[in-house]
Design a protein around this nucleic acid. Structure first.
Length: 642
RNA sequence: GCCUGGGUAGCUUAGAGGUAAAGCGCGUCCUUGGUAAGGACGAGAGCCCGGGUUCAAAUCCCGGCCUAGGCUCCA
């Protein structure tokens, strides 16, 4: 009898008979663990506890205390949903229903559902949970399985693909319900403490847009009701800080029906924030030796034929016909910058050359993808292009990295980093790829950055380092990027004269710090929940006169704060109402000015955190505000400790 | 691009075959207030656009546009 070696998480190993199941291993470790076993993680994959082991594996036993337990629970919740659905809609046919990061979904067909139907299904599901039906794994002959799904081509297909060659095949049953499924599942429906259906939408069979459209129902489940409530609360909060809602409320931007989809209009408040963001990076760029350039919004398509973008991306470009020639709105800034580089001859001594531009680009993304500022047709990249000698890559990338880390720190944004290496299809020789990759890696190591290597995920023209922002709610967004490019210099035949008086090919580095202003703006709005740090706030201080008689003095105070963005609330409202409005408008600081303040030549300060202090000297406040803005602090700190 | 909802005043929404309503905002007046909503009056609506059904359409039907959530894409 052959044996298999099982490696446990603590590194210890066990020898078991070939064909022993996950559960057998658990019992081997201890009877208590055996009893508590819900499932197993075999070579990183979550599987049913009855799964037999036929080769040497790593194994982690999943109990109701494991991190994976909630995945198993949600898998069972998907079955509970399906059971409820079939009770209410006997014609409904099931396809696939896996667990996801924060819940589960089930793709179904044969029913016409909308949001309103979810309540009834949810109630029926609660019924199933309360009945505490035991969930049984049942092995059925293949023939019987095929028979069960006579009228369900999707399950038939699963039998022929995922379950090909399996006989018997694995089913799970609870009460009258059965489903072709690999598992794992919990022991009974009663283990689900909190269950909710969240959304209804559409999907494609096998995720292929040429295949049938299915109805997808999203839901989630937790061991307890409390955890579910917490989850729903977090969801509600996330929705509450949706940048589209806050953007509307704070008059930051709008996307008008008449002017077109995906084409944001920035209102004065929004433009104020963008200007601050732009000034900030422009300063960093100049310090780092970049030269600002500017290119127009349209070019002859000749340019993208030269860069090679045309053949791949014409369909996504906005094209126009002018005097029998084809022009297009620019989808990228790099060909323009490469053309600027071409305008003169360069010596090895001139390199690196660093250009930057806040360049607006236009990409005709799929209609259904457009969404607020996160996906638009027109957006601005804080684009930088460097033309460097191969030996300069490391220093240059290191310098870029320093700027990026500086920015991330300024906004107190968390992030993750991916290093993407050479894909199968690529341009450029082995030597330059190896050298470039090792230089990028050296930079990541020297900056002591945690990163994930994504083998073969680089662009065809060069390796890259991508940052993803992690916002206050733990969501990830595309962020800064540094990409090496060996292709564009070839295409444009860019050269510099080396020490040897020969022509040499520079390497191009594409780099964006924010990524796109639009997306970064969105991240900031949601990250700060509209409570912008004072240096970014569209309105930094609002002066609230207690009565109209105090308005002249307020104007005097505003004049003394003229280098800040200060407004006077001059509507004939009560002080309480003025305060409330200023809070709603998310103004960092309020100054309440009445007769007392006028007489004493003092001010009364209140901040958006509801802290307040009377009899403050304007000079003190002013000096503090200057520091807060200068240092780009993210919190309002004048009244800290009040 | 595909599927399913939705589009009514500047904003948020109610209304559902008989010609449009509320709150906020806006204007005028009263009130001049002291740290999270004072009061009165008033102005403001091509009910997304185009067709159709009907004596009658914001309402029902068809097409388009925009939007939300997904799916599929993202140089």
């Amino acid at each position: 009898m052959s044996t298999v070696t099982v490696t446990l998480p603590d590194g210890s190993t066990l020898e078991l008979e070939d064909g022993a199941t996950v559960e057998d291993v658990a019992y081997e470790i201890g009877p208590g663990l055996g009893q508590d076993t819900v499932a197993g993680v075999v070579n990183g994959e979550l599987v049913d506890k009855h799964t037999p082991l036929h080769e040497d594996v790593t194994l982690e036993i999943v109990t109701d205390g494991s991190a994976e337990y909630v995945d198993v629970l949600r898998h069972s919740a998907a079955h509970v949903f399906a059971q409820a659905l079939q009770r209410l809609y006997p014609d409904a046919r099931l396809t696939l229903g896996p667990w996801t990061d924060d819940g589960f979904y089930y793709d179904v067909t044969g029913v016409d559902l909308d949001e309103d139907d979810l309540d009834a299904i949810e109630a029926e599901a609660e019924e199933c949970i309360e009945s505490d039906l035991s969930i049984e794994r049942v092995m059925l002959d293949r023939e019987e399985a095929v028979e069960r799904y006579e009228d369900n081509p999707y399950k038939q297909e699963i039998l022929e693909t995922e379950a090909a060659g399996e006989d018997p095949v694995s089913f799970y049953e609870q009460g009258e319900f059965y489903d072709l499924c690999q598992g794992p599942h919990v022991e009974s429906t009663g283990e689900i403490g909190g269950f909710a259906l969240l959304e209804i939408s559409a999907s494609y069979w096998r995720g292929d847009e040429d295949e049938d459209t299915l109805t997808r129902v999203y839901g989630t489940a937790f061991p307890s009701e409390d955890e579910l409530d917490e989850f729903l609360e977090r969801r509600r909060k996330a929705k509450e800080r949706d940048h589209r809602k806050i953007g509307q409320e704070m008059d930051l931007f709008s996307i008008d029906q008449t002017t077109g989809p995906g084409l944001p209009l920035y209102e004065p408040n929004g433009k104020t924030v963008l200007n601050e963001l732009s000034d900030y990076v422009a300063g960093l760029n100049r310090e780092a030796g970049y030269d600002e350039v500017e290119t127009p919004h349209v070019f002859r398509t000749e340019l993208w034929k030269k860069s090679g973008h045309y053949e791949n991306y014409v369909d996504d470009m906005f094209l126009l016909e002018v005097n029998d020639e084809e022009y297009g709105l620019k989808p990228m800034n790099c060909p323009g910058h490469a053309t600027i580089f071409e305008q003169k001859s360069w010596s090895y001594r001139d390199l690196p050359i660093r250009y930057f531009e806040d360049g607006k680009v236009y990409r005709k993304e799929q209609r259904g993808e457009l969404s607020g500022l996160s996906r638009t047709w027109a957006f601005t990249i804080d684009d930088g292009h460097l033309f460097v000698r191969p030996d300069q890559i490391e220093d240059e990338v290191l310098a870029i990295m320093d700027i990026i880390l500086d920015i991330l720190d300024t906004f107190s944004l968390d992030y993750t980093v991916q290093f993407a290496t050479r894909p199968e299809k690529s341009v450029g020789g082995d030597e330059i790829w190896e050298k470039a990759e090792s230089q990028l890696e050296a930079v990541l190591e020297s900056e002591d950055i945690d990163y994930v290597v994504e083998e073969g995920d680089g662009a065809f023209y060069g390796p890259k380092i991508d940052f993803a922002f992690k916002d206050a709610l733990g969501r990830h967004w595309d962020g800064p990027t540094v990409q090496l490019d060996f292709n564009m210099p070839e295409r444009f035949d860019l050269t510099y004269t080396g020490e040897d008086n020969e022509d040499h090919r520079p390497v191009m580095i594409h780099r964006a710090l924010y990524g796109s202003y639009e997306r970064f703006f969105m991240v900031l709005i949601e990250h700060f929940n509209g409570d912008f740090p004072p240096w970014l706030a569209p309105e930094q201080v609002r002066i609230l006169p207690v009565s109209d008689d105090n308005i002249p003095y307020c104007k005097q105070l505003r004049a003394e704060l003229s280098d800040f963005r200060v407004e006077i609330e001059d509507r004939s409202w009560t002080v309480g109402k003025k305060i409330q409005q200023a809070h709603d408008d998310k103004v960092p600081y309020m100054m309440v000015i009445g007769d007392d303040e006028e007489d004493e030549e003092m001010i009364s300060v209140r901040d958006r955190k509801e802290r307040e202090e009377k009899e403050v000297s304007l000079v003190d406040f002013r000096e503090h505000l200057e520091r807060e803005v200068e240092q780009k602090r993210t919190a309002v700190t004048f009244l800290v400790g009040q």
